[in-house]
């Protein structure tokens, strides 16, 4: 067997795989943040809590109603997305005219409330969620064994990212969104309902985070604080990719997950900080982010 810098290939591929799985979550979560930031110009601090809710709703559907994973994959994003739309209508909209700091504080407060409520009812210990039967087992790729569910996560993340990119960049609805991001007043002067567009966009971004939560349930333990650490990394990812950049979120998410995985192999001490080091470098040399537009 060949070895790379003294690293056995199994360990290398294993970390690459883990990196890609983390990257899948980074990509889907930062994509939602980017979509929301683009149009609403707010940093949705509640994203991690909504991701956690996505996982919890999935767990509740299974535990209380016996509704399996495949349906949860659709139902949970719809439920949490609808909650997002209510949050936008009732709480974020009144802050729209004020400094964006207020929306940031609001979503931060919401995070604490949502997390607190779930902790109150479910404690902090994780709830197990089984891998759906059809996706159990491993696949022999020749050079490594791939747990099928982990491959599934990556495939689903790629599909959702591509579909979102397509929706935004290639469809009529997406052109409304991009136009409203640039000049909402002009878009409304064409007869388009911009406030509705804003609500739908927020709901969509939130639904993406819930979708990530459903995917996460079988691999990470479902618990009220599962979004907390993740969301900090995801914020770093969108700063690196470029605030509001769709491509930046997708490519940044996957590649930073990969970088993190490789760092674990070659220099494990830095694996939890590497993304923040990259963030600092990007802020120094290209503050608008790698894919961000200069303003």
């Amino acid at each position: 067997m060949f070895e790379l810098l003294g690293i056995p290939p199994q360990a290398l591929f294993g970390q690459v795989l883990l990196g890609l799985i983390n990257g899948s979550f980074y990509a889907v979560l930062s994509l939602g943040l980017a979509v929301i930031f683009g149009l609403l110009n707010i940093i949705n601090f509640a994203h991690g809590a909504l991701y956690m809710m996505g996982a919890f709703v999935s767990w509740m559907l299974l535990t209380y109603l016996g509704i399996p994973f495949w349906f949860a994959l659709v139902i949970s994003p719809l439920v949490v997305g609808a909650l997002g739309m209510v949050i936008e209508r009732t709480m974020l909209r009144p802050l729209h005219e004020l400094d964006h700091l207020y929306s940031l504080l609001l979503t931060f407060g919401l995070t604490l409330v949502i997390t607190g409520v779930f902790q109150n009812f479910y404690g902090v210990s994780g709830k197990p969620y089984p891998i759906p039967a059809a996706l159990t087992g491993v696949m022999n790729l020749g050079f490594m064994f791939l747990p099928i569910y982990r491959g599934f996560i990556i495939v689903m993340a790629v599909i959702v990212c591509f579909a979102t990119w397509f929706l935004i960049e290639k469809t009529r609805l997406g052109s409304y969104l991009r136009a409203a991001t640039e000049n909402p007043e002009m878009v409304s002067a064409f007869g388009i309902n911009v406030p509705l567009l804003v609500t739908l966009t927020y709901g969509f971004g939130v639904a993406l985070s819930a979708f990530a939560g459903v995917l996460a349930a079988p691999v990470y333990s479902v618990n009220p604080v599962m979004g907390n650490d993740l969301i900090i990394v995801v914020f770093a990812v969108i700063v690196i990719g470029g605030m509001g950049s769709i491509m930046g979120a997708i490519i940044g998410g996957f590649s930073l997950g990969l970088v993190e995985g490789l760092t674990k192999v070659f220099y494990p001490e830095a694996s939890t900080t590497i993304i923040f080091i990259i963030m600092a470098l990007v802020l120094l040399f290209k503050p608008s982010g790698i894919f961000g537009r200069e303003v």
């Binding site: 052109s175 991009r178 991001t181 640039e182 002009m186 002067a189 064409f190 007869g191």
Partner: peptide, 28 residues
């Protein structure tokens, strides 16, 4: 706008990040 009034603003209101065709097709 829906009542049938079109607006050509002083800054022209072109969306820079949309193609010409997308700009053309934007107003419903």
């Amino acid at each position: 706008a829906r009542l049938g009034i079109g607006y050509v603003p002083d800054d022209r209101g072109i969306f820079g990040s949309l193609s010409v065709l997308e700009n053309l097709l934007l107003p419903p």
